Simulated assay, not measured.
Amino acid sequence: MKFRPCIDIHNGRVKQIVGGSLSDQGSMAVENFISEQDASFYAALYKNDHIKGGHIILLNPNGTEYYRQDCEQAKKALREYPGGLQIGGGITEENAADFLKDGASHVIVTSYVFKDGIIHYDNLKKLVKAVGKNRVVLDLSCRKSEGEYFIVTDRWQKFTTVRVNLDTLNALTDYCDEFLVHAVDVEGKSSGIEQELVKILGDWGKIPITYAGGVGSFQDLSLLKELGQDKLDVTIGSALDLFGGPMKYTDVVSQLR
């Protein structure tokens, strides 16, 4: 299990938010932390510690003023650490190559592929043709409904009919290099991991998967490693001292090398 750091950008600022609180109306969210540093500060830190494969997430809708501000922040990070970070949020076939040219190692995609409640394989194939399978990360961020996990889109506001299960993972593995999975119901709460989801992901483990959501302690990391059968990487956000939490970044880095 490796540590995959994050840089979440909302309204042009590096933040940590409660995942399920995002709203397009007024660009609002419940905020755990607002950084006084810009995105390049965190990129430089991750670069100096030789941590690759972290992700930048743009949390405002594409086409809005705030999205442009998010992109400006993201480009600072990508210039600081070219090839070291992935980027997601508003990614389409049309703009994916531009983000890679700006220095992203991969583009992370959700709503362009998962929309109207289904998987749009035509868009997925267009994306793969534009940038290559090895540069695509599919974001399978999900919420639980009636005992099952369903992929959610549009800043985690809309449910699809696509379940996060072994069949879905098998169907999508030919179109991407990695999966990123935010457990949205616990995202930003530092309240413990989604154990059932972690078991599903750990039972599969055919390509890299990064799990995010709910990690609040080193005990959570141990449980994640056990239940995920040491097949999953992990992102820690609000619980990290970089973002106002109790877990020391340096301790996480030393433990998850």
Rank of each mutant, 00 (worst) to 15 (best):
F243M: 15
D233K: 02
G228L: 05
Q229G: 01
A239T: 06
S238Q: 12
Y249H: 14
M247P: 03
V253W: 11
D230E: 15
L242Y: 08
Q229S: 05
D241W: 04
Q229L: 14
K231V: 06
E226M: 11
G228A: 09
V252S: 07
L242H: 07
I236K: 05
L227R: 03
G237M: 10
Y249W: 11
M247S: 00
F243Q: 11
K248I: 00
V234F: 09
V253Y: 05
T235Y: 05
P246W: 09
V252G: 02
V253K: 15
L227K: 07
Y249I: 12
V252M: 03
S254G: 04
I236W: 00
K225S: 12
G245E: 00
T235E: 12
S238L: 06
T235W: 10
L240P: 01
L242D: 07
Y249L: 13
G237L: 05
G245H: 04
F243A: 11
D233Y: 05
S238D: 12
Q229A: 12
D230W: 03
D233E: 14
F243Y: 15
L227S: 01
G245M: 01
S238F: 08
D233G: 07
V234M: 03
D230S: 14
M247R: 01
G245N: 09
K231W: 06
S254T: 13
S238G: 13
V252C: 10
K231G: 10
T250N: 14
V234Q: 00
S254M: 08
A239R: 05
L232A: 07
T250R: 15
G245W: 05
D233Q: 11
K231I: 04
G244H: 05
K225A: 13
L227C: 00
S238V: 08
Y249P: 09
V252I: 15
L242V: 08
Q229N: 14
K225T: 01
V252E: 07
Y249M: 08
G237V: 11
D241N: 15
S238C: 15
D233C: 01
V253H: 10
L232S: 06
L227I: 02
P246E: 06
F243E: 09
V252F: 01
D241L: 04
V253C: 11
S254Y: 03
S254E: 15
T250P: 07
D233H: 12
M247D: 01
M247Y: 08
Q229R: 15
T235A: 14
L227H: 07
S254R: 15
G245L: 04
L232T: 00
V252W: 07
D241G: 03
F243P: 04
G237R: 03
L242R: 10
T250W: 06
G245K: 08
